[in-house]
């Protein structure tokens, strides 16, 4: 079976969920080999084996964490040359898309970003499905030059376990000075408690203009915490300074595709819909029955969010106890 490279997203010990999604997708079309940068591969190996990794190429060097994007593209380009894989799968995070972009230039290959599905065409080539223009159009695209580089949207695929050997194979690649020009000198982690990452979360609870103030986002956080969800915000809310900008869902923010998306006090302008329209289930609470967000709702409550949400939190609490 053709080898498919999967770039692992990890925090030094734990494999991120999106990597298990990529492995699940890769298994359909070939034999997945994980590419692991930095240390911690031994710790992550069990999880990679659980999702069917055949090999794990480990490039253990601090360069990958010390410089922005370019070293990872350098490593993947090397592996594309020596292993001649059928495709390279990368998570379509901000960084992942950039790695994909640089790799495309290095290898002269086509790149598809934000892919939500992958199929084989009659000739055995890969066809990527993308959802564009705020979810209004679904596009099938293929790469016709070089090695297909596919950046896959987190949460688009349901991870399914299937055992694999996950044999570790160390890889040594000299990272040239040209890939070490943007140096990471510090990391500032914003407070967000123990909540999951917005793009990875199975449930996202977002608040908008209807909240009326930054203080009221405590209600959104409380609802999110009762469900183990991530918190998001509409542009109106981040522009008003009610919630930090990195949590914005929409055209100029994050695109999320969770199992459940709850839009609280959000009217549903196209700007917002562009970032959440492919969510599997959508729940809406809004006092305006004419709000366009109701068109997307699987379940909607027309009412005052300050009455509906506290009652919902209380009911969730009761069920958790019961």
């Amino acid at each position: 079976m053709a080898e498919i490279l999967v770039l692992a997203e990890h925090d030094g010990e734990t494999v991120k969920k999106v990597t298990t999604e990529l492995l699940t997708l890769a298994r359909v079309h070939g034999e997945p080999s994980v590419v692991w940068t930095g240390d911690g591969a031994e710790g992550g190996r069990d999880r990679l084996a659980e999702f069917g990794a055949a090999k794990v190429y480990v490039a253990d060097s601090p360069d990958y964490a010390d410089y922005v994007v370019a070293p990872k593209a350098e490593l993947l380009a090397h592996l594309v040359t020596v292993k001649a894989p059928a495709a390279v799968l990368i998570a379509a995070t901000s960084e992942g898309r950039e790695i994909a972009g640089r790799l495309a230039v290095k290898t002269g290959s086509g790149v598809l970003t934000d892919v939500i599905g992958l199929a084989a065409d009659d000739a055995g080539g890969l066809v990527g499905e993308q959802s564009i223009f705020g979810g209004a159009i679904t596009v099938q695209s293929r790469v016709r030059t070089g090695t297909p580089i596919i950046a896959v949207r987190p949460n688009a695929v349901t991870p399914v376990p299937a055992a694999g050997p996950a044999e570790i194979e160390p890889v040594q690649v000299e990272i040239p000075a040209s890939a070490k020009t943007a140096r990471l000198t510090g990391k500032v982690v914003a407070e967000r408690g123990e909540r999951p990452e917005l793009t990875e979360a199975s449930i996202v609870v977002s608040g908008g203009r209807g909240l009326g103030s930054g203080e009221h986002f405590a209600l959104i956080e409380q609802l999110a915490d009762s469900l183990g969800a991530a918190v998001g915000a509409s542009r109106a809310a981040t522009d008003a300074g009610w919630y930090p900008h990195q949590f914005q869902v929409g055209q100029t923010g994050k695109t999320v595709s969770p199992q459940l998306y709850m839009a609280i006090g959000i009217s549903g302008a196209i700007q917002h819909r562009a970032g959440m329209q492919t969510s599997k289930t959508i729940m809406v609470v809004n006092k305006d029955p004419e709000a366009p967000i109701f068109e997307l709702a699987d379940f909607g409550v027309v009412g005052d969010l300050f009455k509906v949400v506290p009652q919902l939190i209380e009911e969730i609490g009761k069920r958790a106890e019961g």
């Binding site: 943007a182 000198t185 510090g186 990391k187 500032v188 914003a190 900008h245 990195q246």
Partner: peptide
């Protein structure tokens, strides 16, 4: 800008 806050890059 990153999901967790931000990195400083030089």
């Amino acid at each position: 800008q990153a999901d967790y806050g931000y990195d400083t890059v030089e």
